[in-house]
């Protein structure tokens, strides 16, 4: 497989809960190294799309290929190997509440590697330090703030230096500054470990500051309206909804884009 080939391809995907179609005819692809944003209004099916991509929900029709493989037609071992390459955070956290942060980050390392206890301890220290939580190993998720929980979830997601990172609203509920810092942290980390990132968000700051590509899902027509780079779409999308959605924060792209690379 060459590097130019697309890492993730979604073709003619229809997603439904029971008989209720959430989105249909979703088509896009994500290249290696992309920071890809799934955007759209609340309830349009962003989390649902992410759940389909990570193999937690079966497509009603259509197909999702990751590195050329369909998760649902892969065997057990292959599924496990695919999962090992993914780092995931969930919309409502997903940290194990009865494990400390250190134990939370250690879970994937113990599950997938043969590292010694000492190595795992050092790695846990390091991963928590990467997200600015050095020294919080012995705290329980209930003992730290919501923003810190988001970062701890990030530390667990990157524990294995995964090739693909999936984040569902990683910065939702944080103040604008922390939220931007977290977004930049995500991009910085994924660039350093050479990963591809798929992020669900409807926050404009994130969309403009970190995205290389994005898909816009629409709740009314139950399908995607547009795919492309947000900077391009804000001016040139065929759909007024998309242009409006993106230009609500007209001032933001300039300010944040300007500040990111001083």
């Amino acid at each position: 497989m060459t590097d130019e080939e697309d890492l993730i391809t979604v073709s003619n995907l229809t997603m439904a809960y029971g008989g209720r179609v959430i989105q249909r005819e979703i088509n896009f692809s994500i290249a290696r190294g992309d920071v890809f944003i799934i955007m759209g209004g609340s309830g349009c099916g962003k989390s649902t799309l992410l759940r389909h991509m990570i193999g937690l929900a079966i497509p009603a029709s259509g197909e999702i290929l990751i590195e050329g493989k369909n998760f649902f037609s892969a065997g057990d071992e292959e599924q496990k190997a695919m999962r090992r390459n993914w780092g995931i955070t969930y919309q409502s956290g997903g940290l194990f509440s009865d494990l400390t942060l250190g134990e939370n980050v250690a879970v994937p390392l113990q599950q997938y590697t043969a590292f010694t206890d000492g190595e795992i301890r050092d790695l846990v220290d390091y991963k928590l330090a990467l997200v600015g939580l050095y020294g919080y190993q012995a705290y329980y998720p209930g003992e730290i703030s919501g923003g810190m929980q988001k970062r701890a979830a990030l530390a667990r997601a990157i524990a294995l230096d995964p090739a693909i990172l999936f984040f569902d609203e990683p910065s939702a509920g944080l103040d604008p500054l922390s939220s931007r810092r977290l977004d930049e942290l995500i991009v910085e980390i994924s660039a350093s470990i050479g990963g591809t990132v798929v992020i669900v968000t409807h926050e404009l700051a994130s969309i403009f500051s970190i995205a290389t590509n994005a898909v816009f899902l629409d709740a009314e027509s139950h399908t995607q309206l547009d795919v492309g780079s947000p900077r391009h779409l804000v001016e040139n999308s065929r759909h007024a909804v998309v242009r409006q959605f993106l230009s609500r924060g007209n001032a933001m792209p300039v300010a944040i884009g300007g500040e990111r690379n001083p």
Binding site: G132, Y134, Y136, Y139, I189, S192, I193
Partner: peptide, 20 residues
């Protein structure tokens, strides 16, 4: 380069909290 960036991130916040 990647090593330097990771190092900077991991050492940016370096004052541990008081123990729980």
């Amino acid at each position: 380069d990647a090593m330097q960036r990771l190092f900077r991130l991991a050492t940016a916040v370096d004052n541990p909290p008081s123990r729980p």
